[in-house]
Design a protein around this nucleic acid. Structure first.
Lengths: 249, 249
DNA sequence: CCTTGACATTAACGTTACGTTAGGGTTTAT
DNA sequence: ATAAACCCTAACGTAACGTTAATGTCAAGG
C-alpha cells in the first residue's frame, strides 16, 4: 500500500493528479485510512498504468473511464488498440519530421516547395486547395472585382460570353490530338487569354495558376470533365507552354 | 490572402483558434479589411506553421510567442531544433510502444514482467522502489507497527540488536566462499530470521521480499556494500534457497 | 511531552487553450 | 429579396489539473 506521494513518484504524476482522479471517480484509492489518508494497492497501480497509457493518447479522462469501466473490459484488445494508435502517432510524427525537413530546404535554398507541403502532417485533408488558392488568384479583392465586372454585363452579353467560353473549350478538345505544343493549341490559349479579359486581366503567372486551378477545383473540374476527361490536364499543359514561351521572349 | 476559414482548413485548426491567436497577439492577420475581416498572407502562413510546430511539442503559447518574438530569431536553427525534438518524441513513443508490448505479454501469458518495467516510459526514475514496495513489505501499517516496536526498546537493547545485526551480516560475509547453499549460510539465514523478530515477524514470502529489497533500496544497499559488494546479492540468494526449502517441506 | 518538518486532508479559486452559444453584420447565390 | 454561408465581437463554458490556504497527522529529536 502506497500513499499519494509514493504513487505519484513511481507513476510520474503529482499527488494533485491522484486527488483529481479520486474526485472524478476515475481512480479510487484501494483503501482510505481512518485518518482520511489514501492508500493505493497493486490493482490501483495497474489501473493507473492503464489510465496513463490512454492519457498519452490524449483521450479525455471521461473517455478513459468509460473504456476502463466496461465490465467486459478487454485489456488485451485495449492494449492492441493502444498499439495501433501509437503507431499512427509515430507515423504522423515522422510525417511532420519530413515536413520540417522540406521547410528547412525551402528556407535555406529558397527552393520551390510548392507551398502545398507547408502543412503536411498538420491537417490530414484538403491541402490541395491551398496550392490553388496560394496562387493569389482567389485573393478576395480580385475575386470581388471579377464578380463586379461580371455582374455589370447585360444578360445577353453574359450569354455571349459564356458561349464564347464554351466554344473555346470545345475547340481545345478538338485540337487535343495535335498536342499541347501545336500552334493550333497555342492559338486557342491566346483566345482564352483574351476571353479572360471579360472577368479580369491576369498576368502570366496568374494565367498558369488559373489553368492549374481548373485541375484542382472540383467545381471547375467537373464541368471540364463533361467535355473531355483529359481536358483540364491538357489545358494546364498548353497554358504552361504558352506562358513559358511568352516569358522566354 | 486567405480568410479565417480558409487558413483554418489548410492548417488543420478552427477559425476560433485563429481568433484566439489574434487576441493574444500570437498571430496577427496580415491585413484587416474595412469590414473587420481578417486576411492572412504568405508570411502569416509561415508563422502559423512555426507556431503549430512548437505547439506539437506542447510548448505553451506564451512560450512560443517569446521564442518567435526574439528579434534574432533564427528560423533555420529553430527548425533544426524541431527536428531534434521531434526525433526525441518519436523515440519516446517507440519506448511507449515497447512498454505496451511488454504489458501485452504480461497480461497474455501472465509472464513475470518484473513489475519494474510497469511504468517505464512514464517516469524516468525511481521505479526501482516500486519493485521493493510492491512486495507489501512497506504496507504502512506494517511499517508503523515495526517502528513502534523498535521505539519500545531501551537504548541499550537497541545497541544490542544493532550489534547482533552487524554480527549476522559479517558472519554472512565470512561464509560467502562456501556458497549460498551451504549449511553454514543457511544457518545464518535462520539466525537472521530470528533477528527480524525484533521488528516484526515476516512470513516466508515477506522474508524473501525483504532480502530482495536489500538489493533494490539504495539506502540498504549502500550499507551492505560497505561490508562486501556482493553481500546483498548473496543474501538474496541464500534467503531464496532458505524459503524454497521451508516451503518445500 | 512538546515541537518541528514532512507529510496528509479538504476547499476553492486560477490557468491554458480553446469550444460554444449568442447576437448581429457582409457577401454571394438564387 | 432572401437565404446560405460567411465574417465579426463578446462572453461564458470546459478539461485537467496548478496553486494557494487552512488544517490535521506522524516519525524524529531535544
Amino acid at each position: 500500500m502506497f500513499t499519494v506521494k509514493q504513487v505519484a513518484r513511481v507513476a510520474g504524476v503529482t499527488p494533485r493528479t491522484l486527488h483529481h482522479y479520486d474526485e472524478i471517480g476515475l481512480l479510487k484509492p484501494s483503501r482510505v485510512g481512518a485518518n482520511g489518508y489514501r492508500y493505493y494497492g497493486e490493482e490501483a497501480m495497474l489501473r493507473l498504468q492503464q489510465i496513463l497509457l490512454y492519457r498519452e493518447l490524449d483521450l479525455p479522462l471521461e473517455e478513459i473511464r468509460k473504456i476502463l469501466g466496461r465490465r467486459d473490459f478487454d485489456v488485451l484488445a485495449a492494449l492492441e488498440d493502444h498499439k495501433k494508435a501509437l503507431g499512427r502517432r509515430i507515423e504522423r510524427m515522422k510525417q511532420l519530421l519530413t515536413t520540417v525537413d522540406k521547410t528547412i530546404d525551402h528556407v535555406k535554398g529558397n527552393k520551390k516547395m510548392s507551398e502545398q507541403g507547408l502543412f503536411e502532417g498538420f491537417s490530414e485533408e484538403e491541402q490541395e486547395r491551398y496550392a490553388l488558392e496560394a496562387e493569389k488568384l482567389y485573393e478576395p479583392e480580385t475575386v470581388r472585382a471579377s464578380n463586379r465586372k461580371w455582374k455589370g454585363y447585360s444578360a445577353s452579353k453574359k450569354e455571349q460570353i459564356l458561349a464564347e467560353g464554351k466554344a473555346i473549350y470545345s475547340d481545345l478538345v478538338a485540337v487535343m490530338p495535335k498536342g499541347a505544343h501545336s500552334p493550333e493549341a497555342q492559338a486557342i490559349v491566346e483566345r482564352w487569354r483574351m476571353h479572360m479579359d471579360y472577368f479580369w486581366t491576369p498576368d502570366l503567372d496568374q494565367l498558369s495558376g488559373l489553368a492549374q486551378g481548373y485541375n484542382n477545383d472540383p467545381r471547375f473540374k467537373a464541368n471540364f470533365d463533361k467535355l473531355h476527361p483529359k481536358l483540364a490536364e491538357f489545358m494546364r499543359e498548353a497554358v504552361k507552354i504558352y506562358v513559358a514561351r511568352k516569358k522566354g521572349k
